[in-house]
Amino acid sequence: MMHGLPCLSTGEGPPLIVLLVTPEAAVPTGASRRLTLRMLRPFCERFTAPPHTNRPGLPSATTTAQLAAVHADAIRATFSRPVNVLGLSTGGSLALQLAADHPELISRPTS
């Protein structure tokens, strides 16, 4: 867990927070775990990719902004600098909300 959020870290390098919105609040297991790790394999050569899922016990009426705040708290508590973020599927909406509400936590490429 990362500050109360289930996560599974894989790879080496700077963090790449992968936002997965799943029906269950848990680290993927079985076939779902294998699929998640296979999907993240290309990123793992350059990043440590801890996929995040929902915090256990969140009410079903939790808004995207509230969920983004939960992830923002976890990022603040775990990292001392902005991080890379990747949202998959519905996690993309969560990544956008996180970037809009907490832009200081998101790493931006330099040109």
Rank of each mutant, 00 (worst) to 15 (best):
P42H: 09
I75Q: 00
L58F: 06
G30V: 14
T48F: 05
L67V: 02
V18Y: 06
P82T: 05
R41S: 11
V18Q: 06
P56L: 06
T78F: 07
V83G: 11
F47V: 08
L67C: 00
R76S: 04
H52W: 05
T62P: 00
P59C: 02
G57P: 08
P56H: 07
V70C: 07
E24I: 14
A61N: 01
L20V: 05
S89T: 14
S89K: 02
L88S: 02
T36Q: 08
T36K: 05
R41W: 03
L58P: 00
P56R: 03
V70T: 10
R41M: 06
P42S: 12
R33N: 07
G87W: 05
I75D: 03
P28E: 08
R33I: 12
A74C: 06
T63N: 06
D73Y: 01
P42G: 12
P50A: 11
A49L: 05
P50M: 14
A25L: 13
P50C: 08
E45T: 04
V70H: 03
A69N: 04
N84Y: 09
A25P: 13
R34L: 11
L67E: 02
T64C: 03
S89V: 07
H71L: 03
L58A: 07
L37I: 10
M39F: 15
E45R: 07
S89P: 14
V85Y: 07
T48S: 12
C44S: 10
P51D: 09
P82W: 00
I75K: 00
A31S: 15
T48Y: 02
R76A: 00
L37N: 10
L67I: 01
R76M: 03
R46Y: 13
M39S: 07
R81Y: 13
T48M: 07
E45D: 09
T62H: 00
G57Y: 09
G57S: 03
P23M: 12
A26S: 15
M39E: 10
A68Q: 06
A49I: 02
P23H: 15
T62I: 04
F47K: 02
M39T: 12
R34P: 12
L86M: 13
T29C: 13
R38D: 14
S89M: 10
I75S: 01
F43H: 09
P28L: 15
G91R: 03
T64G: 04
P56S: 04
P82L: 07
V70S: 02
G87T: 07
V83A: 13
A26C: 13
T90Y: 12
P82C: 05
P42Q: 07
L88Y: 02
A68D: 02
T29E: 15
A74D: 01
T90A: 12
P50S: 06
R76I: 00
R33D: 08
P28M: 13
T36V: 15
V27T: 14
P28A: 11
N54A: 06
G57Q: 04
A31C: 14
T64D: 03
A69S: 04
P59V: 01
G57L: 10
